[in-house]
Simulated scan of single mutants.
Amino acid sequence: MALCTGQTSLFMCNSKNREKADRKAFLMRNGKMFLERLISSCNGNYNPIRSFSAKELERATNNYHYRNIITESSIFRLCQGVLPDRTISVMKFIDGSVFDAYDCCFNNIVFASQMSHNNVLRLIGCCLEVEIPVLVFESAEYGNLHDLLKRSYQSHSEPLLLKHRLKIAMEIANVFAYLHIGFSRPIVFRDLKSSYILVSERYVPKLFNFSLSASIPEGETYIDDGVKGTSGIVAPEYACTGYLNEKCDVYSFGLLLLQLLSTGEDLFNMGLRLNGDESFEMDFVKKYIENRGFNGIVDPRIIGDELLEHKLQSSFELAFQCQSASAEDRPTMIDVAKQIKKMYKSF
Rank of each mutant, 00 (worst) to 15 (best):
Ile233Tyr: 11
Arg77Met: 11
Tyr288Met: 09
Leu121Trp: 05
Glu58Trp: 03
Ser89Thr: 09
Leu312Cys: 07
Ser262Phe: 05
Ser279Trp: 13
Ser113Asn: 02
Ala25Trp: 06
Arg77Glu: 11
Glu278His: 14
Ala239Gln: 10
Gly296Pro: 00
Val110Gln: 13
Phe11Gly: 05
Ala60Asn: 05
Ser200Tyr: 03
Leu135Asp: 05
Tyr203Glu: 09
Arg273Ile: 14
Leu149Ser: 02
Glu138Val: 07
Asp225Leu: 10
Lys16Ser: 14
Ile49Arg: 01
Ala101Cys: 12
Ser89Met: 01
Val136Gly: 03
Asp335Ser: 10
Lys20Ile: 10
Gly125Phe: 01
Glu218Gly: 08
Ser252His: 00
Glu72Lys: 13
Leu257Arg: 01
Ile75Val: 09
Ser40Thr: 15
Gln323Tyr: 00
Ala327Lys: 07
His65Trp: 02
Pro331Asp: 09
Gly254Lys: 03
Met12Leu: 14
Asn68Cys: 10
Gly229Glu: 02
Lys163Val: 15
Phe137Asp: 00
Lys167Ile: 00
Gly31Val: 08
Leu78Met: 03
Met282Asp: 14
Arg273Lys: 14
Tyr203Gly: 03
Arg67His: 13
Ile289Cys: 03
Arg165Val: 11
Ala327Arg: 10
Leu149Arg: 06
Ala325Arg: 14
Ser157Gly: 02
Phe34Cys: 10
Ser315His: 00
Ala173Gly: 03
Ser213Ala: 15
Met91Gly: 08
Pro331Cys: 05
Glu237Arg: 08
Val336Phe: 00
Asn43Ile: 05
Val136Ile: 09
Ile289Arg: 02
Arg50Asn: 12
Cys79Ser: 14
Leu307Val: 13
Ser215Asn: 08
Lys32Phe: 12
Cys105Gln: 06
Glu246Leu: 03
Leu272Trp: 08
Val188Cys: 08
Tyr102Asp: 01
Ala169Pro: 02
Leu27Asn: 11
Lys287Tyr: 03
Leu272Asp: 10
Ala325Trp: 06
Asp95Gly: 12
Leu308Trp: 05
Arg190His: 07
Gly81Phe: 10
Phe280Val: 12
Tyr288Thr: 07
Phe320Trp: 07
Ala337Cys: 10
Pro133Thr: 08
Ala140Lys: 04
Leu160His: 01
Glu58Gln: 11
Gln259His: 08
Asp299Gly: 04
